[in-house]
Each structure stands twice: as structure tokens, then as C-alpha cells.
């Protein structure tokens, strides 16, 4: 279980994450929503070690990971994909996967053998198939379409066999149809892999349809958590989303 307790982070005067406590049960699927600048990405950055929290705990199965380095946290089983696809432009899809498995197996510093290592192949293959990238294995990452780059970014997290997968706007920059295809993929992965998935999403239709549980962030705080039905009826959420900035401020 991923258990977040009292997580806070300020940038100057801005409280980007303000005393956030949440838990994510094993195998759960959760959507995080909130207006631009609500602190969604910051929340992920704090969990994954990209940012050091000012205070709070990030407990994965009881082990506090707060303030540890990204490689450390990844090794504990929290993988992530980025809002803007973060990939290795000059490597092919297959090389990317093989190099990631290599790193996960602590073989990234091996000097006396040749890349790729045979023992990394099956996992790399599996991840490419899961994300439908197998037939593009020899394509250089930079030449992939935007959607495929996002998939590769997710594959890069998934290939490490994480317990928890954090997806920062997997559908960012996509058209409606492509969005649905992507989110179906995410749901399919969640069902197949039985891992904990948390994703950030702006499209309300998608969120309400897909996520069994929704967390609403606003000005760094949790505005509400609950099932789609509960969130849809939540006064504060309606106000934050339908009201003006002042309304939203009054709520928080």
C-alpha cells in the first residue's frame, strides 16, 4: 500500500502541496484531477523523489521513501511516466526497453559483456507487447508519433515491474479519439498487471467513466476524494470547477 502522510512543499510563497494525506490500496486505480497549477505534478514529483518534500511521509508498504533519490525510489517499486513524454530520443524502442531492464537488474554498469544482455530480453519483449510497440521496435524514439512517445514513456515505467505506477496526464496533447484509446490502454494495463495505478487527467468524461476513485486537488490541498458519483455531487468540487477563481478560493 502507498500511504502519503502530511506531504507538503512550498515554492517561495506558493504552497504547491499543502499537507496532503492519502492512501492508495494495492491494485487500486485512482484519478487525480484539479485545475492547472493545482499541484498535481508536484504531488507526483514529491512521491518519486524529483522534489524533496518540506515535510511528510511517503510510505510504501511501511517503508518511508520521502526525500530519497529517484533511482532509490524506483528500486522500491514506484515507477512514473511524465506529462511531457520523457524518453531517449536517439535510442530505438527496443534499445530503450533493454537498457531499462538492464538498469533494473543492476547490470547498467557491466563492462565486460555486450549490449543487449540475453537475460533482459523477455521482460523488454513483454513490455513492448503490452503497450503495442513491438512492431515499432526498431524505430528511433525521436521518430515516433506523439502518442507512441507517450506509450514508450509508460512502457519505460512499466518495464521495471513497479508496484505503483504514476501516470502524469497520459493523454496530454491528444485528440478525443486518441485520448480514449490511450485511457483504455491504461485501464487494460491496470487490469492485466494488478498494480496500483494513479493517473492525472483533465478530461472529466474520461475520469468519471474510468476511475473507481477520484482525488480532487486545488491549490495544493485535497478538495475531495471519493467515487465518481460522490465527486460529481460534491459542492466544493462543483464550485471549484464551475465557479470563478474567487469562488474556488473561498472554498479552500
Amino acid at each position: 500500500m502507498l500511504d502519503i502522510r502530511g506531504l507538503s512543499k512550498s515554492f517561495g510563497g506558493v504552497k504547491a502541496t499543502d499537507n496532503v494525506s492519502l492512501d492508495f490500496a494495492d491494485g487500486s486505480l485512482t484519478a487525480v484531477i484539479g485545475p492547472n497549477g493545482a499541484g498535481k505534478s508536484t504531488f507526483f514529483n514529491l512521491i518519486t523523489g524529483a522534489l524533496r518534500p518540506d515535510s511528510g511521509e511517503v510510505l510504501l508498504d511501511g517503508v518511508d521513501l520521502a526525500g530519497k533519490s529517484p533511482p532509490d525510489i524506483v528500486r522500491h517499486g514506484i515507477g512514473r511516466a511524465f506529462q511531457v513524454a520523457s524518453i531517449f530520443p536517439s535510442l530505438t524502442v527496443q534499445e530503450t526497453m533493454l537498457a531499462a531492464v538492464c538498469a533494473d537488474q543492476r547490470r547498467s554498469t557491466v563492462l565486460h559483456r555486450r549490449f543487449p544482455l540475453a537475460e533482459t530480453r523477455d521482460r523488454a519483449e513483454h513490455a513492448m507487447e503490452l503497450l503495442g510497440l513491438a512492431n515499432k521496435r526498431h524505430r528511433t524514439a525521436a521518430t515516433l508519433s506523439h502518442g507512441d512517445q507517450k506509450l514508450l514513456d509508460i512502457a519505460l515505467a512499466l518495464v521495471l515491474d513497479p508496484k505503483v505506477l504514476l501516470l502524469d496526464e497520459p493523454t496530454a496533447g491528444m485528440g478525443t479519439e486518441e485520448r480514449w484509446r490511450m485511457i483504455d490502454k491504461v485501464r487494460e494495463l491496470w487490469e492485466a498487471q494488478k498494480i496500483t495505478v494513479v493517473f492525472i487527467e483533465h478530461d472529466m468524461d474520461i475520469v468519471f467513466k474510468i476511475a473507481p476513485r477520484i482525488v480532487v486537488l486545488c491549490y495544493g490541498r485535497i478538495l475531495a476524494t471519493g467515487t465518481p458519483d460522490a465527486i460529481r455531487r460534491n459542492e466544493a468540487v462543483i464550485e471549484a470547477y464551475l465557479g470563478t477563481e474567487e469562488h474556488a478560493e473561498a472554498v479552500t
Binding site: 528500486r75 537498457a99 533494473d104 557491466v110 559483456r113
Partner: peptide
């Protein structure tokens, strides 16, 4: 051409991402 050599390429391409795959 070793796994380490590919680790170097990964770092060159995107050092931030490299650290998020455990390098």
C-alpha cells in the same frame, strides 16, 4: 558496446529520465 556504454547513451539523451529508471 557494453551495457555500460548504453547507460552512457541513455544519460546523454535524457539524464533526468535515466535516474527514473534506476541509473
Amino acid at each position: 558496446q557494453s551495457p555500460f556504454g548504453y547507460t552512457l547513451r541513455v544519460i546523454r539523451d535524457n539524464a533526468r529520465r535515466a535516474s527514473f529508471i534506476g541509473i
